[in-house]
């Protein structure tokens, strides 16, 4: 599903450049539940941005769903994101003036689905995350856990190939963290590839494979107890 070979990325800082990713090789198969761990500055967010087509790499190859990602213009990247990827962010990133239902339906708008149909599909996904009754609420009327579940529903609504979650529990307390992780596990059980970035050991432990990054290189890549238990 995701194949990365000798990936490099640097950011210019004034006259110098900061070498963030120093040759990453990573292969994630369909249906995997992977977490990327690392302290801040390890390059994990950069990796997620590149995988999520939100940023472009300098060197190396990146295949998404068998397709080589190269020379993408913004428009193509937007279409691929819409088609293959679902995002879950630490700060939820819901649009404040849209209701929960409208937020979930937004990716379908960019897909070109008509309003009636997309509201119906969005409602199904809201139901799936247990928030059907909150459909007409604005994000400001929802708790953190509820917001993240709306965001997860939004990430799933286009039926993507991969769900990318950037510190999905970073802004949540322990109880809600568990419920969000349970939700991600359920999604994974249904066959969805889930790619989580986190710095919390407990969160990573709940995934099936942990990839540890330090200073732009992979230092370990292990299966978790959860995976071994299967």
């Amino acid at each position: 599903m995701i194949r990365i070979e000798k990936l490099h990325k640097s950011y210019p800082i004034g006259k110098d450049s900061l070498h963030v990713l120093k040759g990453i090789d990573l292969h994630i198969k369909e249906g995997e539940f992977v977490s990327i761990m690392g302290s801040s500055g390890s390059g994990k967010s950069t990796l997620l941005n590149i995988v999520g087509l939100l940023d472009i790499h300098d060197e190396g190859d990146y295949y998404l769903n068998g397709q080589l990602i190269k020379d993408l213009n913004e428009k193509k990247a937007a279409i691929l994101r819409n088609k293959f990827l679902g995002f879950v962010f630490q700060s939820f990133n819901l649009i404040s003036y849209k209701t929960a239902l409208e937020n979930v339906a937004l990716p379908l708008y960019y897909k070109g689905m008509n309003r009636k149909e997309r509201l119906k599909v969005a409602m199904d996904y809201l139901d799936k995350v247990g928030l059907k009754d909150w459909a007409s609420h604005l994000p400001s009327e929802l708790s953190g856990g509820q917001k993240q579940r709306v965001a997860i529903a939004r990430a799933l609504v286009t039926n993507p190939k991969v769900v990318l979650a950037d510190e999905p529990t970073g802004a949540l307390d322990t109880t809600t963290t568990d419920s969000v992780m349970d939700l991600l596990k359920d999604i994974n059980d249904e066959g969805m590839t889930v790619f989580v970035i986190t710095h919390e050991e407990e969160v990573a432990e709940q995934t099936k494979r942990i990839v540890r990054l330090r200073d732009g290189v992979i230092i370990s890549d292990t299966l978790t107890k959860a995976a071994k238990a299967l």
Binding site: G52, L54, E74, K75, A78, I79, R81, N82, K83, F87, N93, L94, I95, L106, P107, Y110, K111, R154, T158
Partner: peptide, 16 residues
């Protein structure tokens, strides 16, 4: 800006 960023992450093209 943030709203546009979200929209783009969800698949909005620059043109839209």
């Amino acid at each position: 800006t943030k709203e546009f960023g979200i929209r783009k992450a969800l698949g909005a093209t620059p043109g839209s």
